[in-house]
Design a protein around this nucleic acid. Sequence first.
DNA 1: TTCGTTCTGTACTTCCGAATACAAAATATG
DNA 2: CATATTTTGTATTCGGAAGTACAGAACGAA
Lengths: 200, 200
Amino acid sequence: MARPRTFDEKTALMAAARTFRRHGFADTTTEQLCTAVGVGRGSLYNAFTSKDELFIRAIEAYLQALSEVEHEVLGDPARTGAERLQGLLDLVLEEEENAARDGHAAGCISVATLMSPDLRSRDERIGKLVEEDRSRRHEAVKHAARIGQADGSVTRDDAPDGIAWFVSGLISGIRVNAQAGAPIKVLRRTAATGLRALRP
Amino acid sequence: MARPRTFDEKTALMAAARTFRRHGFADTTTEQLCTAVGVGRGSLYNAFTSKDELFIRAIEAYLQALSEVEHEVLGDPARTGAERLQGLLDLVLEEEENAARDGHAAGCISVATLMSPDLRSRDERIGKLVEEDRSRRHEAVKHAARIGQADGSVTRDDAPDGIAWFVSGLISGIRVNAQAGAPIKVLRRTAATGLRALRP
DNA sequence: TTCGTTCTGTACTTCCGAATACAAAATATG
DNA sequence: CATATTTTGTATTCGGAAGTACAGAACGAA
């Protein structure tokens, strides 16, 4: 009934997310987004209203995709609690390894967005999205920690909530270290050291 | 012999640094800088050439001030290695506590700058400054770790270099968690858990 | 084939913020 | 007190990036 799109929306959002992740919101021009998505200005604005709107939809898509993969690992009944936490760290390490192969660090919308108050105040949905993502992951890790304490694979020196915060921090730390140029091998050891603190 | 400045340069730089830390480079306008420093546009440009130049000098001043305080703790011969590392973490926690009292997280130029590749590519001095700061801290922590391994207060499960990366990551993680809204109490526990991994 | 509808690309407008120009002000020195 | 010199504040310019307008293109349906 009308002219069809020459691009897939989901693919476009993921491409946009990649660009935003690497350059940050303010330092990404709409032109960069056009080339990244492989589409003209007109199409971009036709499909996604504005840069702000595109950003919101892009991080939404990205965070959801990420969350699904993580959920699979953290909720895997075949693993002990400790193995689930280890699995989560492995996902992060794998992502950084892939990114490193392309010559850059993975970047992380959560960290970058959290670190920019102005970005959050730009549109309340942004802060909300990131906060929901964080909170969902927090609960998932907390649950895995409880499982681990029950099956004896995780220390009881900390409450599950404390463990969840620690794991989040550990992941953020690894991401920042990756940006600082730490080689994969070092990132792996950092993860191992961190997890060691959670052994019973 | 000429009209004197109405402001102190060092104070101005620290005020600018504070502003940049909270909003990030791209999201800080020169007007914000003027009000933060308490000076007109003309004066600002007269004293510091451009926004870029001001940014560079501001982070330079800030990182140096920070580094001096940290050096005192990490090099304190009265402390064991573990106590020095604990002291470093205490500095970070203290900074976050003060910031929290003002209703915001401390922010961290290192993390923010590392997380923004475009910012670094803007002027090579920026990346260099942050990298030098990181590297200096890295060496200082590594040294403290060695001391700790020698005096028996720090584990030998990891090499000093690995410990240094871990501690940097731990600090970054704490800063990110602070931005995410974690209360001081949680940050403290995260630090404690991390340091537990370094016990012999 | 023709029409209605949506997509695409380009040229244009608009706006915001960095940077500059310049006149007035403030001091030290002779 | 006069002059040289630097600072200060304001008005203005300038550039770049976001967003818009619009004409043409690509389909499906009648």
